[in-house]
Design a protein around this nucleic acid. Structure first.
Lengths: 117, 117
DNA sequence: CTGTATCCTTGGTGATACTG
DNA sequence: CAGTATCACCAAGGATACAG
């Protein structure tokens, strides 16, 4: 994760807030993680790995940390043996869902368009 | 532009259509270009450069070409001297606007959240 | 189970110069 | 005016091994 993650926000050098949202969603696995967190409400680390088999541990940890630091995701640690950590969406994280749903819809439209051209 | 641009669509290796939409919007300037095309309806190359002063010619050409190839943007060449080229959104391009508006809204919410934390 | 640490590759972007 | 071409950088992401 670059030190200047979120530089657009913290440095105020974004040209419109769309770019802020895109910056937060950019990252190969972010949308997928958020999507799954919304579907399952609360998920453990290894459950996420199973839900997204192609992702590496490194990337999963990293993207979750990004999302957590941006306040989109809650990380709750239960002091048990073996350790248990549950991830879930925060309020502002949940507010992204309608956007993701629209993107899903538009994506289907585009794919359909693409096939017939 | 990578040869496998749109590989997710053409190779069918996307996990959900959200990723397709994100892939199309990803690229440092895409959203901004689409946003401006929507605001001004039809814009010439150099007008876009003035509207987005930080963009280089290379990137503007490249991102416009991407958008055109993906069918989001019309490119109309007028055979005049000096040459004139007008860019505008296609129908499917315009259907992205509601999404961008939501992203703008969410971005403002996030920035506000960020400032007070 | 839930992560870190390290090394490495590659493609997205920028700078700059050139063209019809 | 509306672009191309070329070179170079660097950070995102992948592979793999290790850790509490």
């Amino acid at each position: 994760m670059p030190k200047d993650r979120l530089n657009k926000v913290s440095c105020n050098n974004y040209r419109c807030e769309i770019e802020v949202t895109l910056e937060i969603l950019s990252g190969k696995w972010k949308a997928l993680i958020i999507w799954n967190l919304n579907l399952h409400k609360s998920i453990r680390y290894n459950e996420l790995r199973r839900l997204i088999p192609e992702i590496t541990q490194k990337m999963l940890s990293q993207q979750l940390k990004d999302l957590e630091q941006n306040g989109l995701v809650n990380r709750i640690v239960y002091n048990e043996v073996p350790p248990r950590v549950e991830y879930s969406l925060t309020e502002i994280g949940e507010e992204l869902i309608p956007i993701l749903e629209l993107m899903d819809k538009w994506g289907k439209l585009f794919v359909d368009n693409f096939k017939h051209s």
